[in-house]
Design a protein around this nucleic acid. Structure first.
Lengths: 149, 149
DNA sequence: ATACCTGCAAAGTATTTGCACGAAA
DNA sequence: TTTCGTGCAAATACTTTGCAGGTAT
């Protein structure tokens, strides 16, 4: 597994590459994104940063999470019923097990798609009630619109 | 595949079983949920109903979709960046292919999880960029909290 | 010096709720 | 008749935006 420090470095390089200034607030937000393993939502990120930046604004957190996300360095995880959460400690698509009660999100390895449900239950101790599998990309029509050379 | 009429009957029985009155508005909303194959959002459901019920309120649509969902007769599909959408024409968990540009959502059969990405691209014509796989259930801790005799 | 960022407050969206009236059972 | 549902408007919650001053480069 990649270390949080490596992830942070990767995110900050990407920010620099794209001419985003490395303000202390932005750096702190990047650090939380790189380090958190619990898929925090915006408010949680905000709360983790507040101790070091008592005057930071929620808007700044929204803005910077958006920047990091738009650089492809964080993923958005939408949980129905729960809110929008973010994952930035790893970037490979992988399954999650979501507790419908406490909203805990556990990462799974992509390989577990093979043995599927059974192995998911074994690996997590969850009683899986349902699952959601979404693929994201471009449909044929949209792909062709893209190349109107 | 189950017919829309069957789905509608199933939804209305469930409503009756649970002592929900069958108002014309509620029935219309149930019908849209049962018939739609395109994973509509609230506003789309609303627009489909308005011709027959010009004075219907968006609040009524929200309330009734929530009722149907809470009875387990519709599923919520959260698309990051897009909004919350609903699927009620079938109830089995299954993969979706989501176009990141036009937001079209195409249903896939659960079996396609086996051959996975490759077959998804073949089946949909999508160029798949990423995917999301979530399992929902109860973690061990929450399950035990549930049975405090 | 310049362009970009931040905090604050206001403005948007999306969704939910209180209430008085109306309709299903 | 009684209970529940509806439409409307107001209230919430969440997220985005305009702006004036501040900061990274």
């Amino acid at each position: 597994m990649e270390s949080s420090e490596d992830r942070l470095r990767q995110i900050t390089s990407r920010l620099r590459e794209n001419n985003h200034k490395l303000t202390p607030q932005r750096l702190a937000i990047a650090r939380v994104i790189a380090e958190s393993r619990d898929h925090p939502d915006i408010e949680t990120i905000y709360n983790r940063i507040k101790p070091g930046f008592p005057r930071i604004s929620l808007a700044t957190v929204y803005r910077n999470v958006m920047v990091v996300k738009s650089l492809g360095e964080a993923m958005e995880i939408g949980i129905p019923g729960s809110g929008v959460r973010y994952e930035g400690n790893r970037l490979d698509p992988h399954p999650h097990a979501v507790c419908e009660r406490c909203k805990k999100i556990v990462d799974l390895e992509p390989e577990s798609m093979t043995g599927f449900l059974e192995s998911v239950q074994q690996a997590t101790g969850f009683k899986i009630m349902t699952h959601r599998v979404d693929f994201f990309g471009l449909c044929r029509a949209c792909r062709q619109d893209d190349k109107p050379s």
